[in-house]
Computed example of a mutant assay.
Amino acid sequence: MGVMKQNQPHAFTKRGLRRIAIAVFTGFVGVCGHPVSSHAQTIRIEATTNAIDWNAVALAGGHVFVSGPRWTGFSGPAVGLLTKSKEIEPFPDADWNGWKPGRNATHRFVSVNALHVAPDGTLWVVDTGTPSFGGAPIPEGAKLVRIDPATGHVLRIYPLDPDIAQAGSYIDDIRFNGMHAYLTDAGKAALIVLDIKTGQARRVLDNDASTRARTDRPIIMDGHVVESHLHQPLLVNADPLEVSPDGKWLYFGPLEGPWSQVPTALLDDPNVSSTDLSAAVQPWADLPPIGGSAMDTAGNLYFTNLKDNGVYLRDVSGKITRLLSDLRLHWADAPCLAPDGRLWLPAAQLDRLPMFHQGHSDIQQPFLLVSIHPHAGQVKPRR
Results as ranks from 00 to 15, higher is better:
Glu89Trp: 08
Thr83Met: 03
Asn50Val: 12
Phe65Asp: 00
Pro69His: 07
Ile45Ala: 05
Leu81Ala: 01
Trp99Cys: 04
Asp127His: 08
Thr42Ala: 11
Pro101Leu: 04
Asn104Lys: 14
Gly80Asn: 04
Leu82Gln: 01
Thr122Ser: 11
Gly121Leu: 13
Ala47Val: 01
Trp54Ser: 11
Ile88Leu: 13
Gly76Ala: 03
Asn113His: 06
His63Cys: 12
Ala51Thr: 10
Ala58Asn: 14
Val66Cys: 13
Ser111Glu: 07
Ala94Trp: 00
Phe91His: 05
Trp124Ile: 02
Asp53Cys: 14
Ala60His: 08
Trp99Asn: 02
Lys86Trp: 00
Ala118His: 14
Val110Ile: 14
Arg103Val: 06
Thr106Gln: 11
Arg103Glu: 14
Asp127Cys: 06
Glu46Asp: 12
Ile45Leu: 14
Gly129Met: 03
Ser111Lys: 06
Arg108Ile: 09
Glu46Gly: 07
Gly129Ser: 05
Gly98Gln: 05
Lys86Asp: 01
Glu46Val: 14
Ala60Thr: 03
Trp96His: 15
Ala78Thr: 06
Trp54Val: 09
Val110Pro: 02
Arg70Gly: 05
Ile43Arg: 04
Ala58Leu: 12
Gly68Trp: 01
Gly62Trp: 14
Ala60Val: 03
Thr42Ser: 09
Arg108Glu: 03
Ser67Asn: 13
Ser67Trp: 13
Val117Asn: 12
Gly61Cys: 06
Val112Arg: 02
Gly98Ile: 03
Asp120Phe: 07
